[in-house]
């Protein structure tokens, strides 16, 4: 969906350091490892904002076989920009059972990032969507979620469009530094190309925090993971003491609701009824005419 016209000219070069927190994704049908859909949209948003100055960060297990494949999906998006620098990604090594939060917070603080973009929820793992909120709470940053587009960005604040239900939009002004979670209705990501993906550099940052055991994630120790079950369809249960009512409810056509039928109307009367109904239901504003 195209976004509404921005208020002012967007995307002028500025010195707000921008980073995207990317996660490993999973294709919804084939299950193949790749870029995550919302994170890819966040990278697209960041590339159109600051171009090749965008830096990427991922906290994950460097031993994992498919990790390079996942991250190359993001690095391959560095094409079609003004300058032909290659993408650069900071990999924060994470052992199994460790919490990514202290690492990410330390990296964001050290690198001087003021605008961090990410998807709303990860596609692998818990997928709770809490990382952005916990980072914002820990760093004292502002956070906005469900962002569809960035309209304007200057040194102090960023103006974004937030996606609401039913295709509506809301304009928010967010003070920097801030964290922005990108919604699935944001602009579609550009394709990942092979050459930029091969040329992109993955730099391992392993001196962020002193190695100790406190980073272990103990909260999720006693969770049981199981394959997702299909959610049961809710049955329409009719609570009635009367067998006849239960039968009628079970056999009734749902369409027969019995609304108001107005006949013998001239077109003007019908139009008046229609407008009155729409105004009563607050579809049309009251104050026009």
């Amino acid at each position: 969906m195209p976004q509404p016209e921005p208020q002012a000219a967007a995307g002028t070069p500025h010195d707000v350091k921008t980073a995207v927190l990317v996660s490993s994704g999973r294709h919804p049908v084939s299950g193949r490892a790749g870029r995550a859909r919302e994170d890819a949209r966040a990278v697209e948003m960041g590339l159109s904002l600051v171009g090749a100055d965008l830096s990427l960060v991922h906290a994950g297990d460097p031993e994992q076989a498919s990790l390079r494949e996942c991250l190359e999906g993001y690095l391959g998006m560095y094409h079609g920009l003004d300058d032909d620098r290659d993408g650069q990604l900071s990999l924060l090594p994470l052992r199994a059972g460790e919490d990514a939060l202290p690492l990410l917070a330390a990296w964001l603080e050290r690198s001087g990032v003021r605008l961090a973009l990410t998807g709303q929820r990860a596609e692998c793992g818990e997928g709770s969507g809490m990382v952005g909120y916990l980072l914002a709470e820990r760093l004292g940053w502002a956070i906005a979620t469900g962002v569809a587009a960035i309209e304007r960005c200057d040194a102090e604040s960023v103006t974004v469009l937030q996606a609401l239900p039913q295709g509506q939009r809301r304009r928010l002004e967010i003070r920097l530094p801030c964290l922005i979670a990108v919604d699935a209705v944001a602009e579609a990501p550009r394709q990942s190309a092979f050459g930029p993906a091969r040329r992109g550099r993955i730099e391992t940052v392993d001196d962020l925090l002193p190695a100790d055991e406190s980073r272990l994630d103990t909260g999720s120790a006693d969770w049981q993971w199981q394959p997702a079950r299909a959610r049961p369809k809710r049955l329409k249960v009719v609570k009635s003491t009367n067998a006849r009512d239960r039968f009628k409810a079970a056999a009734a056509k749902s369409s027969a609701s019995g609304g108001q039928v107005l006949t013998d109307l001239s077109p003007e009367e019908a139009a008046e009824k229609l407008i009155d109904y729409l105004r009563a239901e607050k579809i049309l504003a009251q104050d026009d005419q």
């Binding site: 929820r121 596609e123 793992g125 969770w223 993971w225 199981q226 394959p227 997702a228």
Partner: peptide
């Protein structure tokens, strides 16, 4: 959770 998993 993500990736077709449930957490109990």
């Amino acid at each position: 959770a993500g990736d077709r998993q449930d957490i109990l």
